[in-house]
Write a protein that binds this DNA or RNA. Structure first.
Length: 724
RNA sequence: GCGCGAUUAGCUCAGUUGGUAGAGCAACCCGUUUACACCGGGAAGGUCGUAGGUUCAAGUCCUACAUCGCGCACCA
């Protein structure tokens, strides 16, 4: 028999080619303007009275390419956005780019290091300018990656976290909080990284297990234990538990003279129940300037505090002959000296403990007392807790609500000062004499109440201070044009690790600034791991770049692999086999269209056709039931189920069974049956293409253009409505 | 130490308010019929971590334990 080529779009005769299709389709979308809800309204795709749906994109770091985790975030948000846009809602997804303060500065410092330069030798303005240029340049690559995944976000509203308007608003927030007495200047202990020359929040530090020596020294009548003899120069308080029978003869407040490193010292006895009697000898001396625990004890009893170690990690004049030595070198010599003086009792060699290190460079954190700005968290957290307890914000998965609450019930005041240049400057002045701090938005204050000179605060804000305001800032706040329509946002979708870093801060700031919740729902995704479910990391060498995967398998395939079987909050193992399977699926859809269109040549899809036979009626019922089901599941964020069901329906049901049995009908003599079956196939093809669009936007859009040569884009087609 | 999560087929995971265990991938057998070999058909594969409890009925609820993962806090 002679093979007759069907009269359908030539593209369908070749396998689906994502590489050829995706960039072209994305351009079409972008040029259409439909990513912008205002254009959707203008062009009649959305009713001006429709309800709103809004998502703020967690701004990716501008300084790097997208990683696998980002691709999951982008896909989830794009699915939500496309789904709601197709439902005819006023849909806005605001993209952003994060200057990522400390992170970017470190990336840039490494670059400087390679070039043999150092930030400490540069003028702050020059450094800032260089990092700015570098970031703006890098940002383009990040944005290109977001486009490759297919994100249908409104680029016309893109916000950069260092946009002048953002900087201004963040500074105004600081001023407002200062005036509301929610921010104070305080001498508190901070985590100091001597390499990066900045303080860090607790969330920017990690614990690392270290084996050190543990020393016992004679200190007056006591034997004290310590792992850090180099901090002990000024120790003049000796602390023990009030119930410790071994030391019952000593009273709180007793004084005695102890021979110590650089001569005799007058020591005071402190009794405090925070002491662990089991540990060491049950007696320790304290160094309030360089230890959190010691600081707390010192605060409690109003004890003196003295700095021993300077900001570069070197010993101060109090160390006498050891002055100027780096603490890493001084320890052995100090121990030697104490030994010579007969004060060394014994040394334990294998003392394992966790030390706090900088999460970037692993430098041991030196606790230091530093004058910094702090936010009073308790009153703010209380309100955040209230709205969650009132059920105004829902968590997916729900168990994260517990974590949120725990965090809000156990707040500590938040240090927002960072000694880095790459960030939003704190608009404040500090008195040279008495150290009092003032908010000074207009840069007009010169003299302190005490008569001292005021100096400009050179610190910048912790990034979370500005990103905490992001739901508002991204919508242009304090300009209320978009805020009034799109805030509170519908859903905040982000990585589960941000449950305490970011989510609570956004809730807090939206309540504080606008008296509104920041978002109605919180959807938290897990990590994207490698095929063996191992965390991806540069050191393991198992990092998979989403762009590389898109090059090989296409964006639709990657998206499906990320979504199917991935429940909120749980990690996903990203395997190439899985992505390959969905690349095959994209091609399967292609062939379903190819068959359907060529087998029904000459017949036009008629959505109102109603002369179906009983067999089509039951097929329609099955199909429409499925659509009702998945519509409900879309609203419940169960994309992992919807993706799987659509895959199963399109392939094992529609292609393998329905199309197969249709062949004999379409080749048969019964004209009515033929027509009914053709209409069912054509209508179902359209519906499958439509409901799969949020998941696989590229291949479905391309198919739509083939099915409907003369109508508009699938991205603004209506999601099918099923009338039961 | 405190908290959270997980434990279901070889692998990755679903399993809705308790009602006879599901999917994808892989592996196995058969099949080159003109949508597609990026295919089709078929079969196989699980005492649902362990031990108790509640119930007519438990993968699902409760308790304890074990193993794994994650987070937080801390150790002078």
């Amino acid at each position: 028999m002679e093979y007759k080529e069907p009269n359908i779009d030539k593209k369908l005769l070749q396998p689906y080619n994502p590489a050829e299709t995706e960039d072209r389709i994305y351009k079409q979308w972008e040029e259409s303007g439909f990513f912008n809800p205002d254009v959707c309204i203008e062009k009649g795709a959305t009713s001006p009275d429709a309800k709103h749906f809004s998502i703020i994109m967690p701004p990716p770091n501008a300084n790097g390419r997208l990683h696998a985790g980002h691709s999951l975030v982008m896909t989830l948000q794009d699915i939500m956005t496309r789904y709601h846009r197709m439902k005819g809602e006023k849909t806005l997804w605001v993209p952003g780019a994060d200057h990522a303060g400390f992170e970017t500065q470190i990336v840039y410092e490494r670059k400087l290091e390679k070039e043999g330069r150092s930030r400490f030798d540069m003028k702050p303005e020059d450094l800032y300018k260089e990092i700015y240029d570098f970031t703006i340049e890098s940002k383009k690559f990040m944005e290109a990656d977001v486009r490759r995944i297919g994100a249908s976000c409104d680029w016309s509203r893109e916000k950069f976290t260092l946009d002048p308007s953002v900087v201004k608003t963040v500074q105004q927030t600081f001023d407002k909080m200062f005036k509301d007495d929610l921010i104070y200047r305080g001498d508190r202990i901070v985590n100091w990284c001597a390499k990066h020359q900045t303080s860090l929040s607790d969330l920017e530090t990690e614990f690392k297990e270290k084996a050190d020596k543990f020393y016992y020294f004679k200190y007056g009548p006591f034997t004290i234990g310590t792992a850090r003899p180099e901090t002990k120069f000024g120790d003049k308080y000796v602390v023990m538990h009030p119930d410790d029978k071994r030391y019952a003869e000593y009273e709180h407040g007793d004084k005695f003279i102890a021979e110590w490193i650089n001569g005799p010292i007058e020591a005071t006895i402190i009794k405090d129940d925070s002491i662990d009697m089991e540990f060491g000898t049950g007696v320790m001396t304290i160094t309030p300037w360089h230890s959190n625990v010691d600081f707390d004890i010192a605060e409690k009893y109003k004890l003196d505090k003295e700095q021993i170690i300077d900001w570069k990690g070197k010993l101060m004049p109090i160390a006498g002959e050891f002055e100027g030595q780096h603490i890493s070198k001084a320890r052995a010599q100090i121990v030697e000296k104490l030994k010579e003086k007969g004060l060394l009792v014994k040394v334990d060699d294998e003392y394992k403990h966790n030390v706090k290190v900088c999460y970037k460079c692993e430098t041991v954190i030196e606790p230091q007392i530093k004058d910094q700005w702090f936010v009073k968290m308790a009153p703010l957290a209380k309100r955040a807790l209230e709205v969650v307890e009132a059920g105004k914000i829902k968590f997916y998965p729900s168990n994260y609500e517990k974590i949120f609450k725990y965090w809000m019930e156990n707040t500590i005041d938040w240090n927002i000062s960072r000694q880095i240049i790459w960030g939003i400057p704190i608009p404040a002045k500090i008195c040279e004499k008495c150290k009092k701090g003032y908010s000074d938005l207009e840069d007009e204050l010169t003299t302190c109440d005490c008569g001292g000179n005021l100096q400009k605060d050179t610190d910048t804000f912790d990034t979370w201070f500005s990103s905490g305001q992001w739901t508002l800032l991204a919508l242009g706040y304090p300009d209320l044009k978009d805020v009034n329509i799109y805030h509170p946002t519908s859903v905040m979708e982000t990585g589960a690790d941000l449950i305490f870093k970011w989510i609570p801060r956004m809730v807090i700031f939206a309540l504080y600034l606008k008296d509104e919740i920041a978002f109605q729902d919180v959807y938290l995704n897990g990590m994207v791991n490698d095929e063996k479910n191992q965390k991806m990391s540069k050191s393991k060498g198992n990092v998979i770049s989403p762009v590389d995967l898109i090059d090989i398998y296409g964006a639709d395939a990657l998206r499906m692999a990320l979504i199917v079987g991935n429940t909120p909050g749980t990690d996903i193992a990203l395997s190439k086999d899985k992505i390959k399977a969905y690349k095959h699926f994209a091609n399967k859809l292609w062939n379903i269209a190819r068959f359907t269109l060529s087998a029904t040549e000459g017949i036009v899809c008629d959505p109102t056709f109603n002369e179906y036979t009983d067999s089509e009626k039951s097929l329609i019922e099955e199909r429409d039931n499925l659509i009702s089901e998945i519509t409900k599941e879309m609203d419940e964020y169960k994309f992992y189920l919807v993706g799987e069901k659509l895959y199963a329906y399109a392939w094992t049901r529609f292609a393998d069974v329905i199309i197969e049995e249709s062949k004999s009908i379409l080749n048969g003599e019964d004209v009515n049956a033929k027509m009914a079956r053709a209409q069912f196939l054509l209508n179902t093809l359209e519906k499958i293409t439509t409901v799969l669009h949020p998941f696989m936007p590229f291949v479905t859009e391309e198919l739509w253009s083939i099915i409907h040569k003369d109508t508009g884009l699938l991205m603004v087609e209506k999601w099918p409505k099923i009338n039961n």
